[in-house]
Design a protein around this nucleic acid. Sequence first.
DNA 1: TAGATTGTTAATCGATTAACAATC
DNA 2: TAGATTGTTAATCGATTAACAATC
Lengths: 214, 214
Amino acid sequence: MSGAQKSEIGDRMVKRFPLYLRVLREMADRGDIYASGAVVAKALSLDPIVVRKDLSQTGVRGKPRLGFPLNEIINAIENYLGWDAPTEAVLAGAGRLGSALLGYPGFRDQGFKILAAFDVSPKRRSLIAGIPVYPASQITETVRRLKVVLGILTVPADQAQSVADALVAGGVRGIWNFTPVQIAVPPEVIIKREDLAASLAVLSHRLRRGDKGR
Amino acid sequence: MSGAQKSEIGDRMVKRFPLYLRVLREMADRGDIYASGAVVAKALSLDPIVVRKDLSQTGVRGKPRLGFPLNEIINAIENYLGWDAPTEAVLAGAGRLGSALLGYPGFRDQGFKILAAFDVSPKRRSLIAGIPVYPASQITETVRRLKVVLGILTVPADQAQSVADALVAGGVRGIWNFTPVQIAVPPEVIIKREDLAASLAVLSHRLRRGDKGR
DNA sequence: TAGATTGTTAATCGATTAACAATC
DNA sequence: TAGATTGTTAATCGATTAACAATC
């Protein structure tokens, strides 16, 4: 093929795709057939050039004067992000934050399916937001049996490493880490930290400087 | 003065400061007097050059052969981020996510103080994690009376804009937005979005590609 | 003094922005 | 056809990385 696709693309670009998807789905719901980069850019306060370049990364070709065919571009983005075939996940730590995440509808919309949750405390309800909660001792066995790909880590800081170890022992390929701990994992396991402290730092800094954030 | 300080620094750098602070505080607790860039870099798996450059941004000068004086550099970072004088905040939406955040110890560690929470439902407890919960109708008046600087937005998506309006009417200077909605505010108000969908996108993409994340 | 570490200047890299030809 | 929009190539910008002199 002639159109050589760039093999490595940056996180910045990937982060914009959910925004595009939301706008494009809205347009499709309204019955539109095409979406031009300009319209999408306006809806998201982005530069049209960025939108055009990002969308072209999916391999879908837009039609001059019309824009990108909506069905095609939506499917391409979903496929690109791996949201077409749900990624199976478990959540470890069904405390306040964990429970909040179990109820987050974004997982289903965005190609994830939480099969089970775990908690050390037997006092917790055995079902949160329709998802069964098991004792933490069963993490490794359950992850292995269900061939779970992703572990969501919402345990207290002092348990973060040991619970991560249990998830890794079960064979997860990635961990979404909501704890402030930098956990150690084998090199093939992907770690995504959700770093509230970093966000607070950016916020503090902007408030102090009186800057306008994006 | 000769050493002209760079006026505008990037978010990337600001995000690293909480990491430095954690490591530096640990070292100070252990009784160390100096911290070299190399040691800090090793603890965080960062390039020593990055650490040196970031720390020098605070204006503190390190001593060759010894490193940076711990007390001085810790104070400088706290001051730099505005964590020395607590920023007063309120939280709107005391559901699962909101309650989880009310119990998050990071706020106090990082220079924020949540004075009150708000919720539409009168069924909620009137005290969560020691913080009083008031009816949402009192947002504007309370924010104005207490001169609150930051609003934390954890309401359902369909209430995001109207609650944000109430916070702005009370005079907040920034909003930490945990909803998936892109809210509209006057240009002088700082918005910091906490975008779980973007994080999920990065995660999906890495899992699908089998890449190793950082 | 010798040597490790800082601080600064230059080079590299990646992403964003600009310009413009191709196309329906 | 005329004109709007795509797609691509070049220029700019900012951050990271490298190199090295200054310093205790």
